[in-house]
C-alpha cells in the first residue's frame, strides 16, 4: 500500500500490514511511534543515549510481535509504552545497582525543539521536579499529563487499577506543586 495512503490507517491495522510484508507500513509506524517512544524514554531516563537504545529495542519488540498481533485486543500504543516502561525500569535498576542513581543531570542535554530561553528554563524545571518524584508517580503523571493517555490506558501500561492511577496522578501533581513552589517568579509566572 502506498505510504501516503497509510496516514489514516490505525496503528493496529498498520502493524498487521507490516506483519503481512508491507514495508511502507514499517515506515509509517516508525514515523508515527518512534518520536513518542523516544520522548517517553527520555523523560523516564533523562539520558538521550539510553533513551535511543530503549526506543530501538521497544520498536524491535513491536516488529517481532507483529505476526501474532490480533486487532482489537489491545492498543499498540499502550502495549508499546508498557515495553518502554519495563525497559526503562530495567536500566534504572542497573544504574542503582552500580550507584549511578545520584546523577540527576543528563549526560546529553535534550532541550528538544522548543523556542525561547524561558520555555527551556520552564521545561528544565519541570523535568527536574519530575525526576524527584517517586517512580510510579512520575510515570503516571507523565503518561496522563504529557503523553495524553486516559486513566484506563495508563492502568494497562502500569498494570494497576484505574483507582491506583488516579491516586498516583493526584499525589504526583501535589508533589510537583510543592517541588516547584518558590520558582514561580524565576520561571516568569507573575500575578496579573
Amino acid at each position: 500500500m502506498a505510504f501516503d495512503a497509510l496516514a489514516d490507517v490505525s496503528d493496529d491495522a498498520l502493524l498487521v500490514l507490516y506483519g503481512n510484508g508491507d514495508t511502507d507500513a514499517a515506515r509509517a509506524l516508525t514515523q508515527r511511534l518512534l518520536p513518542r517512544v523516544l520522548g517517553f524514554a527520555t523523560r523516564m531516563l533523562n539520558d538521550a543515549t539510553e533513551a535511543e537504545d530503549v526506543a530501538q529495542e521497544a520498536m524491535l519488540r513491536l516488529w517481532k510481535i507483529a505476526g501474532d498481533w490480533r486487532q482489537g485486543e489491545a492498543k499498540v500504543s499502550t502495549w508499546l509504552y508498557r515495553v518502554v516502561l519495563n525497559l526503562c525500569t530495567d536500566r534504572q535498576r542497573k544504574r542503582k545497582g552500580i550507584g549511578l542513581d545520584q546523577i540527576s543531570e543528563p549526560e546529553d542535554e535534550t532541550p528538544g525543539a522548543v523556542a525561547g530561553l524561558q520555555e527551556q528554563e520552564r521545561l528544565a524545571a519541570l523535568n527536574d521536579a519530575l525526576a524527584a518524584l517517586p517512580d510510579r508517580q512520575r510515570q503516571a503523571v507523565v503518561l496522563r499529563h504529557i503523553e495524553g493517555f486516559k486513566n484506563p490506558e495508563i492502568a494497562q501500561v502500569l498494570e494497576i487499577s484505574v483507582e491506583a492511577v488516579e491516586s498516583l496522578t493526584a499525589r504526583g501533581k501535589r508533589s510537583l506543586e510543592v517541588l516547584l513552589a518558590g520558582k514561580r517568579a524565576e520561571l516568569g509566572y507573575t500575578d496579573d
Binding site: 520522548g39 535534550t110 528538544g112 521545561l123 495524553g148
Partner: peptide
Amino acid sequence: LARTEKHVS
C-alpha cells in the same frame, strides 16, 4: 509546554 516538546529521532 512539555506536550509541545518534540523529541526528534
